[in-house]
Structures are given as C-alpha cells and as structure tokens.
C-alpha cells in the first residue's frame, strides 16, 4: 500500500514526471529559442512559472460549471501519470503490464484531450467553446493514425503489451527498421496530440486567445500545464518504447541515461518540427491527416502484416 502511494505520488508518479516534464519543457523552449536565433529562458523558467501560477488566485467564471471546471485539470494530470505506469521506461518491463496495455495507454492518453474539451466546453466562454470544438475535431484526425501505428509493431511482435513489444524488439533490433514509417506518423500525431505548431489550432493565440484555457488561471491552469508537460514526456516515452527499443539490458543507471537520451531525441524532433512550419487551419489539418498521415499509417500496418507472415 505504502509502496503504491509512493509510486503514485513520488516515483515515477506525479513529482518525478512533473519535474521531468518541466525539464523537457525547458529543453523545448530553449531549443525553440535557439533555432529562432534568440537566447531563450534560463533553466529554472518552467519551475518559476509553476510556482508563480500556483501562488495565484483561482478564478471560476460565474457562468461556468464549477465542478467540471475544477475537476478536468486534475483528470488530465492523473490520466497522463497513470499512462506512464504501463510504458517501459528504462527497463524492458513497465511498472505494471498486462496483455493489451498498449490499447489502455492510448486511451489514457486520450483522456487529457477529452478533459481539454470538457474544460473548454464547461467554461462557456466563446473562445473556450470554439477551442473545445477544435480540440475534438482535431482529435478525430490524428487519433486513428496514432492508434494504427502504435498497434502495428504489436502485430509483428504478436503482443499488444508494450513491455512485451519492447522485449521483442530489443531481442530483434533489426526489425525496428520496418517501423520507420510508423515512427514518422507517430511524431506527427503526437505533435497534434500535444497541440503544438502546426497543430496548435485549438489554442491559436491570434484567433481565439488561449482557446480551451482562456478562462483558466492560477492552480487550475498550472495543473493543465503540468498535464501537458507530463503528456509530452509520456508521449515521447511511448514513441521511444515502441519505435526505439534500445539499451534496455544496461542496468538501472545506464538504462535511465539511455531513456533520457531517447526522450530528448524525440523532443528535439518535435521542437524542430514545431519551429519550421506555420500553423494550419483546422480543415487543412483534418485534410492533411486523412490524406497523408492515415494512409501512411495503413501502409505501416501492411508492412507489419506482411513481415509477420515471414518472421512468425
């Protein structure tokens, strides 16, 4: 019981993932700045933002549904932390695992997006509502490709448990090369999930202020930001567990270093991606996802199916 609580709260729960999330938020911000030829924030900026926001007053709009308004940030943060328990972090085995946990992880990672939608919807402000609708529209565009490419490597490994998938691919590292298409698709879909440029349409600053989060302030906003930071790390960990299953047999210390390097690698790709393009319009985003990303995901599925006939 005590061990579970520590697991939940400290390691690898809220505190650890929160700190890691903020460290990677800093990496993202500094890289974004340096690519733009700016200096960027000092290393403690995400922590300073956190403390500052946490010290501020929560304001719940009179028109908003006060219960939903307060619950959704917590829901978002919790779901991402829970998802991390099923993802292999530095060993091939995740903290908990069972057959089919890959599906559960993807569903758990959908909960933050759903809670953004609910938060925006129950804020009842115009900007929030538009943001909420955009969040959900976008979800339908990237979720299917993401699902397909996370599960496709599972076909080859003949398991839908992330831990077993990681174990299979670290035993057959060459087979990873068959998942390159999936890796690219997953990066694009993750960018959409995290609502970053070019898919930051639900919070497009110049159109709908802060979208879903327009009415949020103080501790509730900080929970949302924390949830996004954690989601970034968990998403990157998911991608690296499925597509980059290297360095698992090195023991805890080196395994941890390799884990950090892998997440950093994914983060760098995400940051460079974010820097080099403009924001799309919502219908362009949906078109792009169904026209290019979804067929690519199906292609990955076929590659895995064909290969599994030979490997099996």
């Amino acid at each position: 019981m005590a061990a579970s609580i520590i697991e939940m709260i400290v390691f690898p729960g809220f505190v650890f993932l929160g700190v890691l999330g903020m460290i990677f938020e800093y990496v993202d911000r500094i890289l974004y700045a340096r690519l733009q030829n700016r200096k960027g924030p000092p290393w403690f900026q995400p922590f300073a933002d956190f403390i500052k926001l946490a010290a501020k007053e929560d304001i719940v709009p009179r028109e908003a549904d006060s219960v939903m308004f307060k619950v959704t940030p917590l829901l978002a943060a919790t779901a991402t932390v829970v998802a991390s328990f099923y993802i292999p972090l530095w060993g091939p085995a995740a903290l908990h695992s069972f057959a089919g946990d890959a599906v559960v992880v993807i569903y758990l990672l959908t909960i933050p997006t759903m809670s953004f939608f609910l938060a925006g919807w129950y804020s009842t402000s115009l900007y929030s509502t538009v943001g909420a609708v955009r969040t959900i529209t976008q979800l339908f565009a990237y979720e299917v490709p993401l699902f397909l490419v996370i599960l496709a490597p599972g076909i080859l490994a003949k398991t839908w448990s992330l831990s077993e998938m990681a174990a299979f691919y670290s035993a057959h590292p060459l087979l990873c090369l068959s998942n390159v298409v999936g890796f690219v698709v997953a990066i694009v879909a993750l960018q959409g999930k995290l609502e970053r440029i070019p898919f930051d349409i639900p919070e497009a600053e110049t159109e709908i202020v802060a979208g879903t989060f327009t009415e949020y302030s103080g501790r509730l906003l900080v929970l949302f930001r924390l949830a996004i930071s954690i989601e970034t790390v968990v998403g990157a960990a998911l991608i690296s567990a499925v597509f980059l299953p290297f360095g698992y047999g090195l023991g805890a210390a080196w395994g941890f270093v390799v884990f950090i390097v892998k997440i950093a690698f994914v983060m760098v790709i995400l940051a460079v991606f974010k820097t080099s393009v403009a924001r799309l319009r919502i219908e362009q985003m949906v078109n792009f996802c169904w026209k290019y990303v979804a067929p690519a995901a199906v292609l990955q599925l076929f590659i895995s199916l064909i290969l599994s006939a030979f490997v099996g």
Binding site: N37, P198, T206, V277
Partner: peptide
C-alpha cells in the same frame, strides 16, 4: 507570420 502562427519567420524578419 505571427498571425498565422509562424513565429520563426517573425523572429527572423524582425531580427
């Protein structure tokens, strides 16, 4: 560039 969410171009052109 900023209005279409292309902040990178904003930073470079203003530089």
């Amino acid at each position: 560039a900023h209005e279409i969410g292309f902040d990178t171009l904003l930073m470079y052109s203003w530089r």
